[in-house]
Design a protein around this nucleic acid. Sequence first.
DNA 1: TGTACATCAGTGAACGCGCGTTCACTGATGTAC
DNA 2: TGTACATCAGTGAACGCGCGTTCACTGATGTAC
Lengths: 197, 197
Amino acid sequence: MAMRKSKQETALTRERIVRAAASEFRQHGIVATGLADLMSAAGLTHGGFYRHFDSKDQLVAEASAVALAATTEKIAAAASREPGRKGLEAVVCGYLSTAHRDNPRDGCLLAALGNELARADVETRNTATAAFLKMVDIVSGKIDEAKPEEAKKRAMVAVSTMIGALTMSRIVTDAALSKSLLRNAEECLTSSGGASW
Amino acid sequence: MAMRKSKQETALTRERIVRAAASEFRQHGIVATGLADLMSAAGLTHGGFYRHFDSKDQLVAEASAVALAATTEKIAAAASREPGRKGLEAVVCGYLSTAHRDNPRDGCLLAALGNELARADVETRNTATAAFLKMVDIVSGKIDEAKPEEAKKRAMVAVSTMIGALTMSRIVTDAALSKSLLRNAEECLTSSGGASW
DNA sequence: TGTACATCAGTGAACGCGCGTTCACTGATGTAC
DNA sequence: TGTACATCAGTGAACGCGCGTTCACTGATGTAC
């Protein structure tokens, strides 16, 4: 049963653990996810964990980085599909979809872990900060009717709105309200010249 | 040492536990807060917990209700201080203040526990839903330039923005960025006739 | 190319610890007469 | 009003359990000659 694996297999195993962690943390939260759960989700026993990582915190940092990279890539892809405001709409619609709401395990880490990230160690929070700024930059690049500085401000608020609305849509027990939350935020963020509030 | 307390004292003790829980949960998260920590924060030993509550989940529900009631009251108070848009500004400035950011233990539960609330039991989530709607109603009442239905939509988005921006301001490791997050959201939510995004 | 040996990925049991929960006990409170 | 007794808030020890972490062991991989 127990046996050494080739270097290639070892690297794949490590990736598998990180991906499983990225999913499990987003689904159940960091504190609530045990290493044993996580390793068995990756198809391994928990004893082997420390061949790959120094601690749970290190895995949290790596898994967070992987999860955030996936999200920024998705957002960048949606943004580049169409130019200007149309691209912005694609980003917002994707982020504020019921599919995203119902699948935190492969969705945005910032919305899935919010408060736990605020309590995570510095490395993880640095990664989260960088990812947030990247999202802001992508969105900002799609607001072409404003000066860059102003566009960045608006983008920062827009991303905050997306995170807040998605988070609330997952908390709320009323299905209609949950959907309204997503749709209202979407409308508000994509209405071009309309009134603000 | 161990002795029976009067009914009056018992009621006060119970209140003390709920208030301590409301603080500790918001500061450290629900899962990360142990009953022993919590009881000693209330000046008691952990053994006595079950004289007052059936389970940790029951305390979570009660503490959440108390915390959320305090926040909706604060918001209502700020809103009623001045009429119309001025009142809205007071609400937003208070919510998006650095004082609020730096003191989750007596701040908004929705921002402090975000993702953990999404995983809490139904009773707790119902309470959170009701509190969110109350906040939306208060804000909505201050948007007097729009029709009630439209005002409610905007209020829902505004509250989502507030929660998202406060959450992000706590995650981010860059102090200047953290402050920008709060200020940009504040500006955006209080600028009257300006462009949207 | 083939043989001998060191390496180390993964297993499964164990470590101490703190969790939520239970319980025997204490002794002042509250009640019955 | 005073006495006798039941109640029960709070203590502190203990319950089983799962946590993060460590470790002896296995045996195929990788390396040295």
